[in-house]
Design a protein around this nucleic acid. Structure first.
Length: 283
RNA sequence: GGUCGAGUAGCUCAGUCGGCAGAGCAUACGCCUGAAAAGCGUAGGGUCACCGGAUCGACGCCGGUCUCGACCA
């Protein structure tokens, strides 16, 4: 926001898997109405909480936003968020497609036969794809087999995978906090969300007609509050769980982006505006 | 003050007949192209509360000390 306000014409493109949901405002720390009035934001509030949402949906919306910004001579500032979603924009992916009937069969088989059996089958059909995922990772294995069986083409033939980093027309800057400072900020953030009414927000969403979709209900904060509402956890257990899971997620984000050699890292200690702005100004 | 129980990895706890110290979670590191705020893997980590004793050998048995908890007075 500080950068966008100083540089008229800047528009923010949100690259975040959960802020796309309407009415999920407190728990996703969605930008305020004031911020959204001051600077154009894209890719917020795209679908209802009852809808499933995936990378492909986000890529379509984000690319449309980038085209529109470019056509009016503006400059896009992408904020992530969700590592895979950002990769799909910076390194355009050929997403292979979906075969729901094939997937349904595979999901039944994985229950009966176990992930290792399907991993062996994938190794026979597409050794490269099999080598890229752990034998216990049901979801990735099912997906790779869905594509290979459904399309008749090896899953790995759809792209180089995630470990190839080509030059891109984006400047990439990463923000990194010391772990203990990060932890303290997350704890404060969780308390603030609870004070702001996160529990009521989740309770309200569950009573809407569509409820919370499979993807929406796994959002940090929402999943834990659902456990609270169903009596599986106390308030203090819920607060602790949200803080723990958020901290683990933040570290996982750091590890995801850390692999990308194109990212310039900025170490932040207390004031992100002071440390980050000068770096962005040079771009 | 007395009786009983407990003390083992950062946390919660297993540990059979005395024979190489274990799990889950946490932490660190890594993987993952239509669930990605999801999913998966690898590793590090120990004065077995402390002191002494018997034994070839003790987390385990014996004696004592400390700490915590419950109950009794």
């Amino acid at each position: 926001m500080a950068y966008a306000l100083r540089h008229p014409g800047t528009e923010i493109v949100v690259v975040d898997a959960m802020q796309v949901y309407r009415h999920m405002d407190i728990g996703t720390a969605k930008p305020s109405a004031a911020d959204r009035d001051a600077v154009p934001h894209h890719c917020l509030d795209l679908v209802d909480p009852g809808d499933d949402f995936t990378v492909a949906d986000h890529t379509v919306a984000a690319c449309a936003a980038l085209d529109a910004i470019e056509s009016r001579g503006g400059r896009a500032l992408l904020v992530a968020g969700t590592g895979l979603y950002l990769r799909a924009i910076t390194d355009p992916m050929e997403l292979p497609g979906r075969w729901p009937a094939v997937r349904e069969q595979l999901e039944q088989r994985v229950q009966l036969e176990g992930a290792a059996a399907l991993h062996a089958e994938l190794a026979a059909l597409d050794p490269v794809a099999a080598s890229r995922m752990e034998p216990g990772n049901e979801r990735r294995i099912v997906r790779a087999l869905e594509v290979t069986l459904g399309s008749g083409r090896q899953f790995s033939s759809f792209g180089p995978g995630l470990d190839e980093y080509r030059p891109v027309p984006f400047e990439m800057v990463g923000l990194r906090w010391q772990r203990d400072a990060l932890s303290a900020r997350i704890e404060a953030r969780v308390r603030r969300m609870m004070d702001d009414g996160l529990v009521d927000e989740v309770a309200g969403l569950r009573h809407r007609p569509g409820g919370l979709s499979r993807t929406a209900s796994q959002a940090l904060g929402y999943r834990e509050v659902i456990d609270l509402l169903d009596g599986r956890a106390t308030v203090s257990e819920t607060v602790d769980a949200i803080a723990l899971h958020t901290r683990q997620y933040a570290v996982r984000q750091e590890r995801w982006f850390r692999r990308d050699p194109r990212v310039t890292w900025v170490e932040v200690h207390d004031d992100p505006e002071r440390t980050l702005l000068p770096v962005l100004e040079r771009r």
